[in-house]
Nucleic acid binder design. Structure first.
Lengths: 330, 330
DNA sequence: CTGAAAGCGCTTACAG
DNA sequence: CTGAAAGCGCTTACAG
């Protein structure tokens, strides 16, 4: 059943059926009713790909995620999805599993016009490549970003939030504060490290190079790096960790080493994923507005797609230090 | 830049360019090379929607998930995605957030031919509606299923695994065993409840109606239901809980009530999500082969799409009882 | 091995 | 308000 068949049954032209569906106000009430009756009777559904082809827009956007199983990104994704669906866009999921090759390959969907735009939740590609792409297609970065890149970006200020997290530990009286970073190739890791260093320096605390350990973004890696830190001749009394899942690994390592958190070791995580209030001790962490980041990113993408002007390109969302048991002194 | 432009530059017809891209063996090596040179030089990318329109297949499948932020479903999704991407399919994400209306609306993507097939990870719709849909479109159910429905389905045997979980508690000597179910409108909840009852009955244990509490699929709900159970005049000494996240809520409630797990209360969860080994005490649980379920479901969907015959329709994957601290007697 | 031609099912500018 | 016609960019059956 196609549009011309419906047209015949309703004694109108295909053009009129199309109008009834897409611009009902351009059709007389009487005709509209007659056409709608036929549509309902035969349960006609327009062939969307034909429409996409004709209008040259797919009403599909692509979201590229570094890890779909992450509690953090799935919340951002939900924010994106809500706004997308509310605006009649579908979402194609691009899970890269932190593989830059896969990140790269998803760009083809844009080049081949399979999607109208793209939200990158991971941005490991060349700056020049991204810039070129953004000049040609609607593109928004969220969570991850690229230094000095002139592309719409939504994120928190990772440097200042990491500084805030570290200063919280300093205020608790800690001086031997270690930091377990994420993969240093990722800018988020470098920015959080920067914030840690700023806090240490501005409080006249020495930064022991051995106190900075690079981890991977998972429980086990942080567990191991923590054991390493705890076996130093003067182990730290507090650790700021790249994210919450890793912070749980750190706490587990402390427990397994016979230490109590926060008494023997204070720990601060990052992201405020749901588990941070389930895990014991509850995690002190930096809350990122995950849903809002996704929402904002999708709103920007819609503006780009619709050719609306953007007032500004960098959107810094509000984070918040949330103090819980893993650093609280009773 | 379109195909006919490439054709002109290479001094061939558009048909030949198309063949170079889609059936290179049907073109002479020389011509193929000449065309490829032009394609690379001008960085031509075919317009995928035009191809979709012409071939009447989109190479996109839809996955409908009840909750994208769930640690369980994101693993299933990853299995689906891997097989999809390996077969040049893209995945549109349909997050219903347990809303049957949204589940229903995603069906339009199938009716409007925007996707070649669909994997349902939630199946709350009418049996007849699903059957009708499956007769017309490639459709696979996974995780959730519908009783007596003749549609390809991948899942574990929830009844027997729930029985196994309950019997584990019985073997530990427990007789006062409660069960916190999921929403009873969902078949998974009913099947796990059935398994619980079977285990109790076949071991001559009384099933106290007050020992069966319906929960929602989240930490808080199970926390509250557990408090209710623990305040009974003869509280249970063991609880089998619908899933791991809920089991964590149960354990938290026990702790907050001054009980020790597993000594005062043994707890068994379901799914074996990653957090079940991070949470303390580690959860005894039923492992579901999440990734493999997704993989299998997508493999079946591909067969349906390609018109290959299915040897059977019901695929029961292997689950496993994993005994950890939350029920272990030292 | 290659090309000319038809056609996939819509939408929209144009004419009336 | 409505219709006739063109055309979006490919693929493929057919002919040679």
């Amino acid at each position: 059943m196609k549009m011309s068949d419906v047209a015949k049954l309703a004694n109108v032209s295909a053009a009129t059926v199309s109008r009834v569906l897409s611009h009902p106000d351009k059709v007389s009430a009487e005709t509209r009713q007659r056409v709608m009756d036929v549509i309902n009777k035969v349960n006609y559904k327009p062939h969307i790909v034909a429409r996409q082809f004709r209008t040259q827009e797919t009403k599909i956007i692509l979201v590229v995620v570094p890890d779909i199983t992450s509690a953090f990104f799935s919340q951002v994704l939900r924010g994106i999805e809500h706004i997308a669906v509310n605006n009649d866009y579908q979402v194609i999921l691009g899970d890269t599993e932190n593989d830059i090759e896969r990140e790269n390959s998803y760009i083809n969907l844009l080049l081949q016009k399979q999607v109208d735009g793209m939200v990158l939740l991971t941005a490991r590609l060349d700056k020049s490549k991204l810039e070129e792409l953004a000049s040609e297609f609607p593109l928004v970065l969220a969570c991850e970003y690229v230094d000095g890149l002139n592309v719409p970006t939504v994120s928190i200020d990772n440097v200042s939030s990491a500084r805030k997290a570290t200063e919280h530990l300093i205020q608790l009286g800690h001086t031997k504060i270690a930091h377990i970073t994420g993969p240093i190739s990722v800018i988020l890791s470098r920015d959080r490290l920067k914030g840690y260093k700023q806090a240490m320096i501005s409080n006249d605390l020495e930064i022991d190079p051995a106190y900075i350990q690079e981890g991977e973004v998972n429980f086990e890696s942080s567990y191991n790096q923590t054991l390493k830190l705890l076996s130093l001749s003067t182990p730290p009394t507090a650790i700021f960790v790249f994210n919450d899942e890793m912070a749980m690994g750190t706490i587990k390592a402390a427990k397994d080493s016979g230490l109590t958190v926060p008494d023997d070791l204070a720990v601060v995580g990052f992201d405020n994923i749901k588990m941070s209030t389930v895990f014991e001790p509850n995690l002190t962490t930096i809350d990122q507005p995950k849903y809002e980041i996704g929402k904002k990113a999708m709103e920007l993408l819609l503006k780009l797609i619709n050719g609306e002007p953007l007032k500004k390109k960098k959107f810094v969302m509000k984070d918040e230090l949330i103090i819980r048991e893993s650093s609280r002194i009773e």
